[in-house]
């Protein structure tokens, strides 16, 4: 019951908070890792790679995905798969310790995994 009450409260004060939430929304451009089972070191490196690829291929998701995939294949061995998009659903089987699921820029979802 508690959460529902809190949302109703939010709805009541919507007019005031709308302006407040508008500001942070612009700041939603940092990479946000939703799920990752990689080792810490590898994770940092891969996130960095994804961010650079996305920034280089602004608006070109296909190019970004391709770059990411090819770089990962070179660095960590074959058969990496990469999905970049604003909306998609998936169910994948991946090798353990080789999955990254992150958001970037407030509207892009990136999924990167190593297949078996």
């Amino acid at each position: 019951m508690d959460p529902s009450e809190s949302t109703s409260n939010l709805a009541e004060g919507k007019g005031e908070k709308a302006s407040e939430t508008a500001d942070p929304r612009k700041n939603f451009n940092y990479p946000l890792v939703k799920y990752c089972d990689m080792l810490e070191e590898m994770k940092l490196e891969v996130v960095d790679l994804v961010v650079t690829a996305l920034e280089r291929h602004q608006g070109n998701y296909e190019g970004a995905a391709k770059t990411v995939k090819e770089t990962m294949d070179k660095k960590y061995g074959n058969s990496w798969h990469s999905v970049v998009g604003e909306g998609f659903g998936f169910e994948i089987t991946h090798e353990v310790k080789n999955l990254l699921y992150m958001f970037f820029g407030g509207n892009i979802g990136v999924l990167l995994w190593k297949a078996l």
Binding site: Y35, F90, W113
Partner: peptide
């Protein structure tokens, strides 16, 4: 090698 399955849906509102 050990494997795992993972699924989710990416939507703007989820992000």
């Amino acid at each position: 090698p050990p494997k795992n399955t993972f699924s989710d849906t990416v939507t703007q509102w989820a992000i």
